[in-house]
Amino acid sequence: MNISLFKLLVPKNNIPAKSKPVKDLSEIDVVAQAMIFFLAGFDSVSTLMCFTTYELAANPDIQDRLRQEVMTTLDECGGKITYEGLLKMKYLDMVVSEVLRKWPSTLATDRLCLKPYTINPALPDEQPLHLEEGSILMIPIYGMHHDQEYFPNPDRFDPDRFNDENKDNIKPYTYFPFGLGPRNCIGSRFALLENKVLMFYILMYFEIVPVERSRIPVQLSKTSINLTAEGGFWFGLKRLKR
């Protein structure tokens, strides 16, 4: 991957000067924050839920294995799921982690360069990349998650990438669906919990099946800024016999 793709220069005079904290919020501030809440809290979680549903419908063997874990956990919790029981579900965590690798809710993230830095070339035909103070680095999450060097056969949905044996082999800073460091997503744990609870109850009562309008493999929309399916996600719920 050419490291020049990471750089987007912003003039230094665009960096906001240090000033005293603003105590009062204007209407624009309130509206802007509300919009961020909707985009970051609703759209990203719905994307994760939709692609989880898609992968379970497209991979019935994985869905069956996950349902077995759901039923086992339900028995261990006395017929009612608990927070502790949900956290112990290793395969559910593996499935959700792989969905976030293959279909990250955010295609890229950015960071501000606070001091000059030079990235030395990794390939013979590359030039050093000089980052100036005030540069904004665009980091392609989707590109990193689909890099053959870090995730072999990246288009294959394989939750076992995140099992106890393999997850420690994932190179640091190559998997970051919620960002990294002190500026990572503040709502990541809540988003994961929402998705896991929903999947738990769906698989407890239903089998997720393709229907006439389902598209497998999925066709990505070319008009959305984030990942979504062309024409939407369409799947059926088949009631389980219990």
Score class of each variant (00 low, 15 high):
Lys115His: 12
Ile36Val: 15
Tyr54Ser: 06
Glu98Met: 05
Leu240Ile: 11
Glu207Gly: 10
Ile3Tyr: 06
Ile15Ala: 09
Lys20Ala: 14
Leu227Pro: 04
Ile141Pro: 00
Asp75Asn: 14
Lys20Asn: 08
Asn14Ser: 04
Pro152Trp: 03
Pro60Leu: 05
Thr52Cys: 15
Phe51Ile: 07
His130Glu: 10
Met49Asn: 11
Phe176Gln: 00
Lys7Thr: 14
Asn226Glu: 05
Met1His: 13
Leu48Arg: 00
Tyr91Ala: 07
Ile186Met: 01
Tyr173Ala: 08
Asn184Ile: 02
Leu180Cys: 02
Phe233Pro: 07
Thr52Pro: 04
Gly187Met: 10
Ala108Arg: 08
Gln127Asp: 12
Lys23Asn: 11
Leu48Pro: 00
Pro60Gln: 04
Pro60Thr: 06
Ile81Phe: 14
Ser188His: 13
Arg65Glu: 15
Pro104Asp: 07
Ala40Leu: 03
Arg161Cys: 06
Pro152Asn: 02
Ser105Met: 09
Asp75Ser: 14
Ser26Asn: 08
Gly181Gln: 02
Leu39Phe: 05
Pro210Asp: 08
Pro217Tyr: 07
Phe176Thr: 04
Thr72Arg: 14
Gln219Arg: 13
Pro128Asp: 08
Ser44Thr: 15
Asp158Cys: 02
Tyr150Ile: 04
Leu198Gly: 06
Asn153Pro: 03
Ile28Cys: 05
Leu39Tyr: 01
Ile136Ser: 09
Leu92Ser: 12
Asp125His: 15
Thr223Ile: 14
Val30Thr: 05
Arg161Ile: 06
Ala191Ser: 15
Phe235Ala: 05
Phe190Trp: 10
Lys7Gly: 13
Ile3Cys: 02
Gln33His: 09
His130Asn: 12
Met204Pro: 04
Gly85Gln: 05
Val211Ser: 11
Met199Val: 15
Leu92Phe: 12
Phe176Glu: 01
Leu107Ile: 15
Glu165Gln: 09
Ser188Phe: 11
Met1Val: 10
Lys12Asp: 11
Ile36Cys: 03
